[in-house]
């Protein structure tokens, strides 16, 4: 069998195919934006939650923990830590760090005020109420 295989045609197909699939992707992104209000728990984005997210970010929590499965895998998943441990445990836990137990993984103490702790907990509560298609498989995350 023989045939033609030209660089010009391969190039056209590359550009055409890329534009095509990028537009298809954008169409799906558009639909996602329309659906998100029913899933992303935006009605509970209070001032506390927003402040809590900023504390989450500026302490680089994602550098050890994961949130909805994304981040580092050095410390427990926190997307469902609110239902797993409850607000009081989370606050007490953060205040008692580091444990100093020899040879064990250590978490720094971030010296958060009571208000900051409450905001962080509010953020973790909000995160736990996002519709994640039933992920994680169980409460241990």
């Amino acid at each position: 069998m023989s045939g033609i295989f030209s660089k010009a045609m391969a190039r056209n197909i590359f550009y055409g195919g890329t534009v095509f699939f990028f537009l298809l992707f954008l169409a799906l992104v558009y639909d996602t934006e329309r659906e998100l209000p029913t899933r992303d728990n935006r009605q509970n984005l209070s001032a506390e939650v927003i402040a809590g997210k900023k504390i989450w970010e500026t302490r680089n929590c994602i550098g050890c923990h994961s949130l909805l499965g994304e981040g580092a895998y050095f410390a427990p998943e926190l997307g469902n830590v609110y239902p797993r441990r409850g607000p009081e445990f989370i606050k007490a836990w953060m205040q008692s760090q580091p444990t100093g137990a020899p040879g064990r993984r250590q978490m720094p103490n971030f010296h958060l005020s009571d208000e900051e702790l409450d905001n962080l907990v509010a953020f973790l509560k909000y995160s736990s109420e996002i519709n994640t298609a039933n992920w994680p498989p169980n409460i241990e995350g």
Binding site: K7, A10, R11, I13, F14, G17, T18, F21, F22, L24, F25, L28, D31, T32, E35, L36, R39, D40, N41, L68, G69, E70, I130, N131, T132, A133, W135, P136
Partner: peptide
């Protein structure tokens, strides 16, 4: 050209494999 076409044709929509469990539509 052929290889990068295949890479983008699969890879762009392939972004979806990160959207399973973060609250995006199912």
């Amino acid at each position: 050209y052929v290889i990068i076409t295949l890479a983008l044709v699969t890879g762009i929509i392939g972004t979806g494999h990160h959207y399973y469990w973060i609250g995006a539509p199912e």
